[in-house]
Structures are given as structure tokens and as C-alpha cells.
């Protein structure tokens, strides 16, 4: 028996909007720790890891670890039917091939049940090693989204370079080149507006912009985003989900042969 009640149902709506274009089908894993997902895009270039900790749910019952295969497009369609202020409850019986989403309006005057078929998905969980990153950049998530969108109108790839001067995003395309430098800026009114650069070593890596633009669909989940970079390792683009967990996107770099 599984029963997860999330008072801030909009979080789950936003999570689905953030991942549904990157990943088609995925297993949601439910354990005492929380509700999680790990999945790669179809070309195995990017990986998404989601964790919503059990403590973040108003009610969290998961009698045994279960894995529920879902089509994320279909799940997003169902969650779109929940109001932004609705409380969302996920329910599944042991051995069942369906999951039920229950949406309750805040005043309890409207209650909806949506039942979705589960699917069998062969998923291989990857071990993500702990890594020491050469540089960690925290910046406003809206600023990062703006940079990715702007650069993708010029080129297909972005070179992210972190030096003591700041973090530089560069691209080139048929019509020309673009460089955007963000310097550390901690003298702002609100901490979430700061750009903070922790650098152990300078690092420069090349990535496909279209994946970054997909990751920025998670922008509504968090005011800030953290980029963790190390030479010849996938970048980690992390959006913290307040009081609940995180959504992390890993993107493999482009490397010269």
C-alpha cells in the first residue's frame, strides 16, 4: 500500500513539466527515504535524478519499496488537471497496475480521482560517484534560463569557463559569436539574487545547449540553480525543491577526440 499526500501539489505539477520533455518513460521509486526517480534521455546524454523526501509529505505511507513505471507525458496530462492550490495524493495498492492521483481543492469542495495505468519499464540505475568539483556556480535560475535561451539563438553548443574573473558562457554559430560573463555578485538585496562562484581550479567544458534549455524547464521550482563543473565529467545542474529535495540534471560534455 502506497499513499503519499502532498499539500503543495503544485510542486509535483512543476516537476513533471520539468522532466516530461527530456524523458518519456521512467520508474518512480518509493521507499522510506522518499519518492525518487532516476532516468536518462533517449540518447543517454543526459540523466535526471529527482528526490522528494518523505518528510516533505503531509502523509507518507510506503509499506514496502516499490517501483512504478509511468509515461511522463501521460502523468503530466493528469497532473495538469490539478489546480495549482490543490492537495495531491498518490495512491497504489500492492501489486496493482494502476496509480491513482487524487486532487483536493483547498476548501475541500472539489475532489477528483484520476487513475493512470502503470507500465513495465526496464531501467538501469546508474551509480553516480561522489566527485570533487573544480568549480561550483550558484546563480538566479531565471538568469541561467535567460542565458541558455539567448545563446541558443546564436549557436548549438556552449562553452562554460570558470576562472577567477567569473563564469563565462560562450557560443558561436553561422551569424557570429556571443560571450556572456557573470561575475561573483554577493552585494544584492536578496540572497537568491546573488551569483556565487566557488573555484578550486579553472575549468572549461563544452555542452549541447538544447539540453540546458530543457533543464531550465525546472526554473519554476527554485529561485536559484547550481552548476557543478569538473574537467571531463558531466556537469550537474541542480534545482533545490524547498524543504523537499532536489531535481538534478547531469549532462555529458562534448570532448575532443
Amino acid at each position: 500500500m502506497l499513499e503519499l499526500r502532498l499539500v503543495q501539489g503544485s510542486l509535483l505539477k512543476k516537476v513533471l513539466e520539468a522532466v516530461k520533455d527530456l524523458v518519456n518513460d521512467a520508474n518512480f521509486d518509493c521507499s522510506a527515504t522518499g519518492f525518487s526517480l532516476q532516468a536518462m534521455d533517449s540518447s543517454h546524454v543526459a540523466l535526471v535524478a529527482l528526490l522528494l523526501r518523505s518528510e516533505g509529505f503531509e502523509h507518507y505511507r510506503c509499506d514496502r519499496n516499490i517501483s512504478m513505471g509511468m509515461n511522463l507525458g501521460n502523468m503530466a496530462k493528469m497532473l495538469k488537471c490539478a489546480g495549482n492550490d490543490d492537495i495531491i495524493t498518490l495512491k497504489a495498492d500492492d501489486g496493482s497496475d494502476v496509480v491513482t492521483f487524487m486532487f483536493e481543492s483547498p476548501t475541500q469542495d472539489k475532489i477528483a480521482d484520476f487513475e493512470m495505468k502503470l507500465m513495465d519499464i526496464d531501467s538501469e540505475h546508474l551509480g553516480i560517484p561522489e566527485a570533487e568539483y573544480h568549480a561550483i556556480v550558484r546563480m538566479p535560475s531565471s538568469e541561467f534560463a535567460r542565458i541558455c535561451k539567448d545563446l541558443s539563438s546564436i549557436g548549438d553548443t556552449v562553452v562554460i569557463s570558470v576562472t577567477k574573473e567569473g563564469v563565462k558562457f560562450s557560443t558561436r554559430g553561422d551569424i557570429g559569436t556571443a560571450n556572456i560573463v557573470c561575475r561573483q555578485n554577493t552585494t544584492v538585496d536578496k540572497p537568491e539574487e546573488a551569483t556565487v562562484i566557488e573555484m578550486n581550479e579553472p575549468v572549461s567544458l563544452t555542452f549541447a545547449l538544447r539540453y540546458f534549455n530543457s533543464f531550465t524547464k525546472a526554473t519554476p521550482l527554485s529561485n536559484t540553480v547550481t552548476l557543478s563543473l569538473s574537467s571531463e565529467l558531466p556537469v550537474v545542474v541542480e534545482y533545490k525543491i524547498a524543504e523537499m529535495g532536489y531535481i538534478r540534471f547531469y549532462l555529458a560534455p562534448k570532448i575532443e577526440d
Binding site: 536518462m40 540518447s43 543517454h44 546524454v45 543526459a46 540523466l47 538501469e124 540505475h125 546508474l126 551509480g127 553516480i128 560517484p129 553548443t157 563544452t206 549541447a208 565529467l233 558531466p234 547531469y250 549532462l251 555529458a252 560534455p253 562534448k254 570532448i255 575532443e256 577526440d257
Partner: peptide, 14 residues
């Protein structure tokens, strides 16, 4: 020319 790597080149199966 930079070649796109796959995630599986960095992270092994559990």
C-alpha cells in the same frame, strides 16, 4: 571537433 559523450561513459550501472 568535439564529440558528444554519453552519461554511461562516466557513470556505471549499479
Amino acid at each position: 571537433v568535439n564529440q558528444q559523450r554519453q552519461i554511461t561513459a562516466f557513470f556505471g550501472k549499479k
